[in-house]
Design a binder for these strands. Structure first.
Lengths: 219, 219
DNA sequence: TCAAAGTCGGTGACTTAGTCACAATATGAT
DNA sequence: ATCATATTGTGACTAAGTCACCGACTTTGA
């Protein structure tokens, strides 16, 4: 539970109090499914800690990550579904163990009309997520997979040229298929750019990877 | 110019007056480019008539339509760029000859803080466009082109089984390439589903097209 | 009315990406 | 050690996009 003098990230004192008193305190473990495609949307989430990964899923199992939600940020897909009374089109997976408050539509509306700060933050989140979503679409539709994979590897580099993740993780992250990622990585290994281990990728020639990355887009 | 007793679609009387007095009245012919990738965003548009097609463009020239803006609707990409002070990531093309008002950031903010109706309409537009954008992403990333093409043809059917458009139009609309569309159409023509003419497609077997459409997704 | 320029559609050859069906190997738990 | 599971490797195939053309039709202007 939240202390009296604590605040919920993204809310002012008054709104925090309202949510803490009328909302439902919730927790969820890593991997839990917060919502899924087709399900009706009835609750809005305000996180105090943890994070949720929001993604779309194909029948084939292929996934594309849309954005991630943490404390102080609103899940705009949830807002859209609440406002439009439409079912979810994506799924929300707990990535970091979660704590926060769930509120119903009436309380959500009360916050929207009473708190300028809440309104602004929702609008700001929409604004940012929208730009990002367009970027995801551009990447998926136009940018060569090779370039995106190189960019992601460099991004995930922990500073020592080591990327601790599976091929499946990368495939999901980029909205591709595991086999395709495996083949690209294998080709780079054959050329000496990287070294592959189970669950780990070692970057040997950072500069060459950067070339691949930039070949079709700055990142 | 707008009459005193007219209103700008989507705005209440007071806001209309404000925009009509402080905004710049603009017109643009079909095909005009309202904004383009990389350009700074400084004006917000309120249309009284006409429409704008908002799309992203690849280096190769391939395009994907994100949404269309008409009277009473806000161009959410413009809102995002205004709020985030970021450059446009897509381009806006006039599809139906345009009339309306352009307002600067200060006036936009004044409307946002003074008019509850304006705020609500912006938020509502975000909410709808967001859902639609996710749908576009799902289609482009997961749904077979054949299915999407069939759906679009049936959608464009004027009721007499005639679709008056070029292959290039369909390609742009679906975010594909002209040659690919031409080949799919040719195959359907060989099988007797459609008949092709220059700038026109005749649907012969509606039911078979519906099968293709539904083979991977309801529309 | 004729020719040039532009638009529209067709085609082959090639590359990239995704799908399907497996096999092989590594890891961890019991 | 053995079994279940997770991870990776591979071949064969299909779908989609790219590139480089060509030819056929339309519009326009001299």
């Amino acid at each position: 539970m939240i202390e009296d003098n604590d605040q919920i990230p993204g809310l002012d004192a008054k709104a925090s109090k309202l949510v803490a008193s009328k909302g439902i305190f919730i927790t969820a473990p890593k991997g839990a499914k917060v919502f899924e495609p087709g399900k009706k949307c009835e609750l809005f989430y305000l996180l105090t800690c943890g994070s949720i990964r929001v993604q779309i899923v194909a029948e084939s199992g292929r996934e594309i990550v849309l954005y991630r939600v943490g404390p102080g940020a609103a899940c705009v897909m949830t807002v859209s579904c609440l406002l439009g009374h439409s079912p979810y089109s994506g799924e929300g997976i707990v990535e970091q163990p979660l704590e926060g408050y769930a509120i119903g539509f009436p309380l959500f509306q009360e916050l929207m009309s009473s708190s300028q700060g809440f309104r602004d933050s929702i609008l700001g989140d929409y604004s940012e997520r929208f730009i990002e979503l367009v970027e995801v679409l551009e990447d998926v539709a136009f940018r060569p997979l090779e370039s995106r994979l190189a960019a992601r590897l460099l991004q995930l580099d922990n500073g020592f040229g080591i990327v601790p993740c599976t091929h499946q993780f990368l495939a999901t992250d980029l909205g591709s298929a595991r086999e395709v990622i495996s083949r690209l990585l294998k080709r780079w290994e054959d050329r000496g750019l990287i070294a592959l281990e189970r669950g780990k990728i070692n970057i040997l020639l950072k500069n060459s990877l950067t070339n691949y990355k930039d070949h079709s887009r700055p990142g």
